[in-house]
């Protein structure tokens, strides 16, 4: 290579190198300078890369119909969100609320508020069902997503959701959002006679007693003749807090109809899973005997005086 050609080669290499880096990188060093960390393989990335974007980027192959979704929704979602998406207790309402955003008590649902359908697929897959996140197949996520869209009158009852039909969905409130433009208030640092003292009136005071009621909130330590180790490890998380409709430990009213079914039936449900409760509460390493011990503990809590 001639000296000139050599110089051109070096310069073009340099240009190629610099254009591949963002401007900030110049003053901070270069990629890989520390040599710390292990290269992430495509397989490793694929296992964790679960995010979906509004343009559909990230949606996997698969499909699910409104019809399929109805049954799955009833089994996995309705105990918290209600059969029609109306919400149970303080769990999120999923449907309704159209036109309510300007009302004093807006109802922010998938149909009335969410700007993108991709968010629904992403979130159901990412975090639902509440007690067993990421336990559903892609087809199940498609089906339940389709059903929640149906509950919001966004698709017809014969709709089948796929990565392709996804782009046909239009969310009513897509244009309802704007970028942060604060500050949106302008106060002054007036120091004297800033307003008429006669205009100072009390508008509201708390109506709820929260601090004084705190002792009622603390988790009470139950004493029991039955071993509660397994209960504490595997069951307490949901059954002490009443998560997703789980009958709360010690709640006699909630347990009465269950006790009527008999211990054997309850035990079968606990071992095999029932409704939203996973088999053995999701702790598959437990033996059937250990599950039985935990169940006996919980039964004892509603039999005690």
């Amino acid at each position: 290579m001639s000296r000139l050609a050599n110089r051109i080669f070096v310069v073009s290499l340099l240009v190629a190198f610099m254009s591949a880096l963002p401007a900030w990188a110049d003053s901070h060093g270069k990629a890989g300078q520390y040599g710390i960390g292990k290269a992430a393989t495509a397989e490793e990335i694929a296992g964790w890369d679960i995010d979906i974007r509004p343009d559909g980027k990230g949606l996997p192959p698969g499909s699910g119909s409104v019809e399929d979704g109805e049954m799955m929704y009833e089994e996995k979602c309705a105990s918290c969100h209600g059969s029609f998406g109306e919400g149970v207790g303080r769990y999120p309402v999923l449907s309704g609320g159209e036109g309510s955003l300007t009302e004093p008590r807006p109802e922010k649902t998938v149909g009335s508020y969410w700007p993108y359908a991709s968010t629904l697929w992403d979130y159901i897959h990412r975090a639902m069902p509440f007690t067993q996140p990421q336990s559903m197949s892609d087809d199940e996520v498609y089906a339940i997503t389709a059903y929640v869209l149906y509950l919001n009158d966004l698709v017809e009852d014969d709709f089948v959701l796929t990565a392709e039909t996804f782009t046909s969905i239009e969310m009513p409130n897509q244009d309802g959002f704007f970028l942060d433009d604060r500050p949106d208030t302008e106060n002054t640092t007036c120091m004297e006679d800033c307003k008429d003292p006669a205009s100072v009136k009390i508008l509201s005071e708390p109506t709820m007693v929260t601090l004084a009621a705190q002792e009622d909130v603390a988790v009470t330590e139950e004493t029991s003749s039955v071993d509660d180790k397994v209960y504490r490890q595997a069951c307490q998380m949901c059954h002490a807090a009443g998560v997703a409709g789980a009958p709360m430990t010690g709640d006699k009213a909630a347990w009465a109809p269950r006790l009527e079914q008999g211990r054997e039936k309850l035990l079968t449900g606990a071992i095999e899973g029932i409704g939203i409760m996973p088999a053995k509460g999701g702790q598959k390493q437990l033996s059937d005997q250990e599950v039985a011990t935990a169940l006996d503990y919980m039964i004892e809590q509603v039999k005690q005086d």
Binding site: K108, Y113, F178, D180
Partner: peptide
């Protein structure tokens, strides 16, 4: 591009009186 996930659309957006909502109000 941003991902517009649940915690930056359904939640953590600021609904105003006119029905519009402020997003990415960090």
């Amino acid at each position: 591009k941003p991902w517009y996930h649940r915690e930056e659309t359904s939640k953590y957006t600021d609904l105003l009186a006119d029905g519009r909502a402020r997003k990415f109000s960090y």
